[in-house]
Design a protein around this nucleic acid. Structure first.
Length: 354
DNA sequence: TGTCGCGAGACAGCGCTGTG
DNA sequence: CACAGCGCTGTCTCGCGACA
């Protein structure tokens, strides 16, 4: 099988284009022509080469190929948390498109640590990735905010590009959900049902997603002439436990509210658990809304009203950007979101407040 | 004219050798 | 000691020549 003559000793041997050429009784040039097309090769020779490729289980050396064609076919995807269904959906969309384009996706889990994210970008640059997709809201760390655009510029110089999924940055392409617009929709919906005391379980303070969704709710309240009570905002991690803890803080406070606006669905699930533990019914005692429309929400009782973010489509679009030719001007695509009404919201009770 | 082989050169980056 | 130059890795492209 793999040649033992050329490289002896304990060194690992691999099948190269030369081995295929030898078995097919042609030159490496002809093997390359068969594999890549674009040159005339007789049917008989083509068959011999293809047979040798199968016999030797030959696959091209991606590193060596990258040297010649200046493309590794590698796309790095950096996400905050692999256990978060939000990112799972985005990655599913990315891989759907990657599979059609013969791209290898490398998944990196930053656990929302800005230092990890920067290190992964550098490592992917070192691997000469064709593109790096950064999914999730921006982190407000000063060093990170200064360094990341620099990394995007270096990538661009290498002929690669950076694509932001769910946030934007100069020198990088971006696919964005309308965070502010979606939060505005939810706010208006709650206000329309008579809710005036709306508690907010917001995301961590240093994330752009947190700011945008809070701003959307703010805008809805402002438009309705409803003053916002700062006591009714508690921040937490973008997770089930983050929502659970924040809801418990709200319940322990003496503040009164008729509805909870959670910054994402996982937080809404945590809040639902905390409300249930406190003996409160959703939506009879408190209304609850989430954000994202994660697939797992379909099996939750009561069904949680939310905003559908086209996560899979965002992933698909990011990958298409990664596979397309880089342009000078960064590209921006904003995807619309829609309100999904389920059973977790009821009209505000006339007097009763939690 | 079609098909194929040959050889040079390019690619990134490490390690080695020679030179000043 | 610093620096330049070269070899090495595997693949691919390109120009040119050979052959049926």
């Amino acid at each position: 099988m793999a040649r033992a003559s050329a490289r002896g000793g304990g060194r690992p041997t691999t099948t190269t284009i030369t081995d295929v050429a030898r078995m097919a009784d042609v030159s490496p040039t002809t093997v390359s022509r068969v594999l890549n097309g674009g040159y005339p090769v007789s049917a008989e020779t083509r068959t011999r080469v293809e047979h040798a490729v199968r016999e030797l289980s030959y696959v091209r050396n991606a590193h060596a190929q990258a040297l010649r064609v200046a493309s590794t076919g590698l796309v790095g995807v950096i996400i905050h948390d692999v256990a978060d269904p939000y990112f799972a959906e985005i990655v599913a969309g990315i891989q759907e498109v990657a599979a059609t384009g013969q791209r290898l996706v490398v998944l990196c889990n930053s656990l929302r640590d800005p230092g990890s994210e920067l290190r992964y970008v550098e490592m992917l640059r070192g691997q000469r990735a064709d593109a790096v997709i950064l999914a999730g809201g921006a982190i407000g760390d000063p060093h990170y905010l200064q360094e990341l655009p620099q990394q995007a510029r270096w990538l661009r110089r290498q002929g690669a590009r950076m694509i932001m999924c769910g946030r934007q940055m100069a020198d990088a392409d971006a696919v964005l959900p309308d965070n502010r617009g979606g939060a505005y929709l939810l706010g208006r919906y709650l206000l329309g049902l008579g809710h005036r005391s709306i508690a907010e379980i917001s995301g961590p303070p240093d994330f752009s997603t947190t700011d945008e969704r809070s701003a959307g709710l703010d805008e809805a309240l402002r438009d309705a002439g409803v003053a916002r009570d700062p006591q009714l905002t508690v921040s937490g991690h973008f997770s089930r436990d983050g929502g659970y803890d924040a809801a418990r803080v709200l319940l322990r406070s003496r503040s009164r509210f008729t509805a909870i606006f959670a910054a994402n669905d996982m937080m809404a699930l945590g809040a639902l658990a905390a409300l249930r533990e406190a003996g409160l019914r959703v939506p009879d005692d408190v209304s609850l809304v989430g954000y994202d429309d994660l697939p797992i929400l379909r099996d939750v009782v009561p069904g949680i009203t939310t905003v559908r973010v086209p996560m899979r489509e965002m992933g698909r679009r990011c990958m298409r950007m990664a596979m397309s030719t880089a342009r000078r001007a960064p590209r921006r695509e904003t995807l619309p979101v829609e309100l999904v009404e389920r059973e977790s919201v009821a009209p505000a009770p006339a007097r009763q407040q939690v």
